[in-house]
Design a protein around this nucleic acid. Structure first.
Lengths: 225, 225
DNA sequence: CCCGCGTCCTGTACTAAGTGCAAGCGTCCC
DNA sequence: GGGACGCTTGCACTTAGTACAGGACGCGGG
């Protein structure tokens, strides 16, 4: 059984696997070591500490987002593609938003994305400053959406750890949320018409928000053009 | 020195103070006990555990947001007021977004807010479903904005813990971010014209995003009206 | 062929923090 | 006055991050 010699890249990749499967809280150095067939602290040779490892994982993941060909698409299609791609990546890795909240994270991967997004809005004809704000705003939309999504994932995961019937535990949480919501008139009306759960937002909420936002940007361009 | 007898409300209030001052990571039960002049574990009689305490703190904080008088304002002013209020609360308590990412949190405070926001968009004439989506989207905008803000707060705080000259450490982080950003053409251009830091978004980015979003909603209403 | 050195990994142990447990203490009611 | 109950305490167990002190392995020089 030869030692394949750990590398930083492999450690990061494995960490991402664990993060995807277990969430930010589920990542611990001992488990990571075991998964790599190494001693609990073997990784410390390659990465400074856990914080650093998470930083590396975050930046790695940014590279999953495909950037649009500049110029090949209109600005709106490009902006949509980027925002949608970000949204999808955030859904694929719900721990990302947890890591970003409360940590000052930047890096090559994020910069690459930011640059492309900025390009899209500049192509729309916005001033540099406005393009900057527009980029940040569409970024926020995806990020905010991910906060809610990661909460739901966390619920689902917690349910699996608590023992007992997962569906049961999940239903309890949702029932409690529903019961609380039911004491507010409009939420109750929504619950009654939707039937389903209150926190289970329709899947295309993000698309709705993005569309409205981009419509607003278009109006701004038209007004000045 | 009589014991003022701990209450759950006081524990939550004190926890919020610590959270505001030290962030989510800064809250630990021992420190909380000391601050309350109690034994490290005295609070366990009043709150189930730390997770539960954070839940209580989160819901408490939702009540800080002032709700608009229904009907007294137009829908747009009402929606703006709510979103802005949410944004301000999230800035006042940067740990809030950290707590929401990765935990399924609901409660009376949040429901109360959701209901009011929903009312504003229904007043705008959107269908129930669309109002729901619009509410969720403006929610996301604030949430996403808060993620970035909490990251900056975390940076500032970390700087104070690291010893050494705070301004120095902070500058290092920002310098590194700047250096990375500088290898991307558009980001570099922005840096050069802005002079300041790349991650220091203009303060009104949130307002910009919200305005564009609401413009988009207006257009949607006009198109159908 | 052996020595020494740099690279990488292992095991051990220390520390911080969440929290269950059972005993202690005060207050209030009977 | 005494007991019960509400609240607090200290202790101890557990999980997890990580420092440290070596040990194994391979490689170039003597």
């Amino acid at each position: 059984m030869q030692k394949p010699t750990l590398t930083a890249a492999q450690i990061v990749r494995t960490a991402i696997e664990i993060l995807d499967a277990e969430g930010l809280d589920g990542l611990n150095m001992r488990a990571l070591g075991k998964r790599l067939n190494s001693a609990p602290t073997a990784m410390y040779w390659h990465v400074k500490n856990k914080d650093n490892l998470v930083r590396l994982a975050v930046d790695e993941v940014w590279h999953e987002i495909a950037l649009p060909d500049p110029g090949a698409l209109g600005w709106r299609a490009a902006a949509t593609k980027l925002a949608t791609g970000l949204n999808e990546t955030l859904h694929r890795h719900p721990w990302l938003v947890q890591a970003m909240a409360g940590h000052f994270l930047y890096g090559e991967g994020k910069s690459r994305f930011d640059d492309s997004l900025l390009a899209a809005y500049e192509a729309a004809g916005l001033s540099a400053e406005q393009a900057d704000q527009a980029a940040a705003a569409s970024f926020m939309l995806a990020l905010g959406n991910a906060v809610g999504a990661s909460a739901n994932v966390a619920l689902a995961r917690k349910v699996n750890l608590d023992g007992g019937d997962p569906a049961e535990v999940m239903r309890e949480s949702i029932d409690e949320a529903t019961r609380i919501a039911a004491s507010f008139p409009r939420l109750r009306a929504r619950l009654e018409s939707a039937g389903a759960g209150y926190n289970e937002a329709p899947g295309d909420t993000f698309a709705f928000g993005l569309t409205a936002f981009l419509d607003g940007i278009e109006r701004r361009i038209a007004a000045r053009g």
